[in-house]
């Protein structure tokens, strides 16, 4: 059993939790994920690690209600337990490895996080900041009310750019438009890291390909075991089949077949589920965030 030692409501449907998980907290690195299962009946839900504290032996996750499982998880309180919590899974971000530090220092990096994807951007930016590298960060939301993690991000980012689709806060537009604006102003980037809904990462990649900026994306397909056993998370990268859970979750965004990946996210969506999402997300619903999606 894994205790929720801190719980913070970030938004009406987004909750942050610090989970006591000594083995995960000891080994994890930015870019990796965990799988949580709240009780006997729950699904195995993959969630990207958003922060960790090796001394307190805690791992931070951010959960958004997507399906029945995440909705029930919202009801858990501080002090409650998750039945299962396993990780760290997947490969760490190449950027956040000591052995690559020298290479990384030479690069001007921009992060683009969208919606819930803001949260897993944070540990990478924080790790870089702690190693003396300040990266620019763009975080995008639909509107001001959905904003979260702004202060945390500002404390570790070089320059922070907040965007809202409706212009209610920060830059009026999305992450792509903000990046284009920065490049137009004369900013130069050697690397882009984008985490968010698949549809957003797809458009970021289309833009950065045009701009000639190599781009890393973090893929969040449907998963079951998270250790390479089921093959549910398979996706096509550079014409080859890869398993996001063991080969990823980070990939060269310019080589990912996003259209295929987005279709696969539909696999277990019922008609009812689709209707619920369409209702809740309004015109911003692109159908690209499957039952475990949207967490990055």
């Amino acid at each position: 059993m894994y205790q929720i030692v801190r719980r913070q409501q970030l938004q009406s449907n987004i909750v942050l939790m610090d989970i006591k998980a000594p083995r995960v907290a000891k080994e994890c690195l930015p870019g990796q994920f965990i799988i949580a299962k709240m009780d006997e009946f729950g699904e195995r839900i993959p969630l990207t690690i958003c922060d960790y504290d090796r001394e307190k032996e805690t791992v931070t996750i951010v959960v958004q209600t997507i399906g029945a499982g995440t909705e029930r998880m919202m009801d858990l309180k501080e002090g409650d337990f998750l039945m299962d919590f396993v990780g760290p899974l997947g490969c760490p971000s190449e950027l956040c490895l000591e052995k690559n530090l020298e290479e990384t220092r030479k690069k001007k990096i921009v992060f683009i996080g969208g919606g819930l994807g803001t949260a897993p951007v944070y540990p990478q930016v924080k790790w870089l900041h702690e190693h003396g590298i300040d990266a620019d960060v763009i975080i995008g939301y639909r509107n001001k009310d959905l904003l979260f993690y702004e202060e945390e991000m500002r404390s570790v980012a070089g320059n922070l750019y907040v965007t809202t689709d409706d212009g209610s806060y920060g830059f009026h537009g999305n992450g792509c438009q903000q990046l284009q604006a920065l490049v137009d102003e004369g900013k130069k980037y050697d690397l882009c890291v984008s985490i968010g809904p698949m549809i957003m990462m797809k458009f970021v990649c289309l833009l950065t390909k045009e701009l000639g900026i190599p781009t890393i994306v973090s893929m969040n397909p449907i998963m079951v075991d998270g250790t390479g056993m089921c093959g549910a998370c398979r996706l096509v990268v550079d014409g080859k089949v890869k398993f996001a859970c063991v080969d990823g979750p980070e990939f060269d965004g310019h080589l990912v077949d996003f259209d295929q990946a987005m279709k696969r996210m539909q696999q277990y969506k019922s008609e009812e589920g689709r209707a619920k999402l369409a209702y809740e997300e309004g015109d911003t619903h692109h159908g690209g965030c499957g039952h475990c999606g949207g967490d990055k």
């Binding site: 079951v224 056993m229 089921c230 093959g231 549910a232 696969r264 539909q266 696999q267």
Partner: peptide, 16 residues
Amino acid sequence: GEQANGVFSANEFLTR
């Protein structure tokens, strides 16, 4: 066509 929706490994199908 192996990446299409509705194609599963036996492992995935049986694990679920």
